[in-house]
Computed example of a mutant assay.
Amino acid sequence: MTQSRVLALVGSLRDGAVSRQLAETAAHVAPEGVAVDVFDGLADLPFYNPDIDDPNPPIPAVAALRAATAQADALILVTPEYNGTIPAVLKNAIDWISRPYGIGAIKDKPIAVIGQSPSANGGKWAQEDTRKAVGIAGGRVVDNATLIVGGTGQKFGDEHPRNNVEVSDLIAGVVTELVAAA
């Protein structure tokens, strides 16, 4: 059986962030034959600037992100909601992997988007903005591979989301749909 590789990008840099825990949950519940790798290194990316986007010499953090994206069969983007929209760190990552435009590492990759928030809204606006940004950047958003998780504070408390059977099952469904689209 061929191993499917899914790269998870997390829109929060905070230690113990719920977004990171949801990405870890995706890795934990991935079906046999699917590896979900949570990318570490978004904090090391400079803000996208065409003046510094030069492969000679490459920026190590950018080269690592682009290589990980190119090697993945699909991506999961997990986003909290900051002021009603996508966090800068995740938007910046999308910008880097979209270049050169039209042939960037994200081109035609199946994408799942998981939004989360302590509010009942569940990060709906951030999820919508992330779907829009990654679609314009060249990714292929898989409509059946999206999820909004609201009320995270009450839902998880001090527990890791992988311990919540309902959320774990929903994330497993997202991963399954995403891999089927790849």
Rank of each mutant, 00 (worst) to 15 (best):
N83P: 11
D73G: 15
P118K: 06
P110M: 07
Y101D: 05
A93Y: 10
A72D: 00
A105S: 15
Q116E: 15
A64W: 01
I86W: 02
I94N: 09
P110E: 13
W96L: 12
N83W: 04
A93R: 07
N92I: 14
A72P: 11
Y82N: 15
A72C: 05
G104I: 03
Y101I: 07
V89L: 04
T69R: 02
P100N: 00
N83L: 13
D95L: 11
L75V: 14
S98A: 14
S98K: 03
P80C: 00
N92A: 09
N83K: 15
I86D: 09
Q71H: 10
V113H: 02
R99A: 02
K109N: 11
I76P: 10
D73Y: 09
G122R: 07
A63R: 09
D108Q: 15
W96Q: 05
A112M: 08
V78E: 01
K109F: 01
K107Q: 12
I97K: 07
A67L: 11
I103T: 06
A88W: 04
A74Y: 11
L65Q: 11
D108L: 10
D108I: 04
K91L: 12
A120R: 10
A70T: 08
T85N: 12
V113Y: 00
A67V: 05
T69Q: 02
A93P: 04
I106Y: 05
T69M: 07
Q116V: 07
A112F: 12
I76G: 05
N92E: 13
I103Q: 14
G102D: 11
L75E: 14
A93C: 04
D95R: 08
I114K: 05
Y101K: 06
K109I: 11
V89C: 03
I76E: 05
G102I: 01
P80V: 10
R66F: 00
S98Q: 09
V113E: 08
D108Y: 10
G104S: 00
L77Q: 06
A74L: 15
I103P: 01
L65F: 13
A93E: 13
